[in-house]
């Protein structure tokens, strides 16, 4: 695995639960969103499987931002996976994000399999908020 990745364009990496938004129908063969090729996704069985270190890794290896997308709060297929990752990213549960991680570049969405449009809308807002940060570190 290469530690230095040449940055080509803006890229956002999402960790998406396979049971939340209909992600399999929303991506191309390169795991990029059909509606927004700047967004690449890693698909997981549950959002609770995401390690905060993996999101930090995305940022340190060149992503402009990263997000996790899980089932609607209250409706996780595995009961509490979405609550776990939310608590981890909010610093309420171990393992947490490092204190040096810019949390403004770490997004969270919790949506159902019928929420394609709301997801794209929320993603647009997230991207805009990240873009507003500019070159700020």
């Amino acid at each position: 695995m290469s530690d230095t990745i040449e940055k080509k364009n803006k890229v956002i990496v999402g960790f998406v639960c396979q049971r939340s938004i209909p992600i399999q129908d929303m991506i191309d063969e390169h795991k990029a969103l059909l509606d927004d090729p700047e967004v690449k996704v890693v698909i997981l069985p549950c959002s609770g499987m995401v390690k905060p270190t993996q999101m930090e890794m995305a940022l340190t290896k060149g992503a402009d931002a990263t997000f996790v997308c899980g089932c609607a709060i209250g409706d996780c297929h595995y009961r509490t996976g979405n609550l776990m990752i939310r608590a981890r990213l909010e610093g309420e549960r171990n393992p947490k994000l490092r204190k040096t991680t810019d949390k403004r570049k770490v997004g969270m969405f919790f949506l159902t399999m019928k929420d394609k449009a709301p997801f794209l809308e929320a993603l647009k807002g997230f991207k805009a908020s990240v873009a507003a940060l500019g070159g700020e570190n």
């Binding site: 997981l44 609770g48 776990m84 393992p95």
Partner: peptide, 28 residues
């Protein structure tokens, strides 16, 4: 579900077909 994998800071627990190393390689 892999929630335990997300909780482990030491790569000590894994799902054999969805291994953290594979996820991180995909990410890179």
């Amino acid at each position: 579900c892999g929630v335990c994998v997300g909780a482990c800071p030491f790569l000590a627990i894994e799902l054999p077909h969805t291994h953290s190393k594979t996820i991180e390689a995909d990410l890179v």
